[in-house]
């Protein structure tokens, strides 16, 4: 066996052969592609640091704060307030402002449908891999975020103070006060900044329209989730988080 091994030349591990000469701006002889480095070990080290760091964070947090556990489940005693998990509090908050089919089914389905269709509406490759695509994109996102935070907070507060379904209970049918009116206001608030951008002097492209619509969706979700999670107390009424009646603490329900 030993003889047989020696009868072969030592394997180089890699062989080269000339297949074709290609005219291209980059040749790979003696240098790697520009601006790249070997993934090993740097990527392995970075991933290890992220993994260990987030594990350490989780262990430390778990040592400091205990997971909540209330009394044994009892279908006869309703908790007040009864809240869904925090990531569904945006949905529960919308239920306060419009018809359940609209808030719980139609708008969420539209939102997911919009998310899935984003890359099929904005399919240009321009600006991929750059935060906000451009300086202008960054400004658009900033202003849209500010706009959304203000109008959605305003929508929640106004609707809470003057609920149309109470004010026009005997004047208008439920379909108008619970579905058409709040749905129309929502649609207007969502589309308004996109129309402003579309009609602006500089014009717009699909990416910028997507930036506006996604930012509206994202910050609406943030505002509604925070309202439902932080500002809703007993009776699902609005309170300041630090002035909840009855010692209710929203964070106990995480």
């Amino acid at each position: 066996m030993a003889n047989k091994e020696q009868s072969f030349t030592k394997p180089s591990g890699k062989t080269y052969s000339l297949v074709e000469i290609v005219k291209a701006p980059t040749t790979m002889v003696d240098k790697g592609p520009d601006n790249t480095i070997f993934a090993f070990p740097i990527v392995a080290i970075l991933e290890l640091i992220i993994a260990l760091g987030s594990t350490l964070f989780l262990v430390l947090f778990s040592l400091l704060k205990d997971a909540p556990l209330e009394e044994l489940a009892n279908p006869l005693i309703t908790t007040d307030p009864a809240k869904a998990p925090w990531y569904f509090m945006g949905l529960q908050e919308m239920l306060e402002h419009m018809h359940p089919t609209l808030a719980g089914i139609i708008l969420p389905v539209l939102a997911v449908g919009f998310l899935i269709s984003i890359p099929y509406i904005d399919y240009s490759r321009e600006g991929a891999g750059v935060w906000f695509t451009s300086k202008r994109g960054k400004r658009i996102v900033g202003w849209t975020a500010l706009y959304t935070t203000i109008v959605m907070s305003g929508f929640v507060l106004l609707d809470n103070a003057f609920p149309p379904r109470e004010l026009f209970r005997d004047v208008l049918p439920n379909l108008v006060t619970q579905s058409i009116l709040p749905g129309g206001v929502m649609a207007l608030l969502v589309i308004l900044p996109a129309i402003v951008l579309w009609k602006s002097k500089e014009g717009s492209n699909p990416r910028e329209i997507m930036l506006v619509l996604f930012t509206v969706l994202f910050f609406t979700a943030v505002v509604l989730t925070l309202t439902g999670f932080l500002f809703r107390g007993p009776g699902f009424e609005l309170f300041l988080p630090w002035a909840m009646p009855g010692g209710y603490n929203p964070f106990d329900g995480l």
Binding site: E70, L72, A73, N74, T78, A82, A84, Y87, Q92
Partner: peptide, 28 residues
């Protein structure tokens, strides 16, 4: 996350899932 929320079977779990699943019932 939502399916795990029910498992401790305390008041928090019970009412969060009751509220959460009641939304599904509104699909016409």
């Amino acid at each position: 996350s939502f399916t795990g929320y029910l498992l401790p079977w305390d008041q928090l779990a019970f009412w969060a899932i009751t509220v959460g699943t009641s939304v599904a019932a509104y699909e016409p």
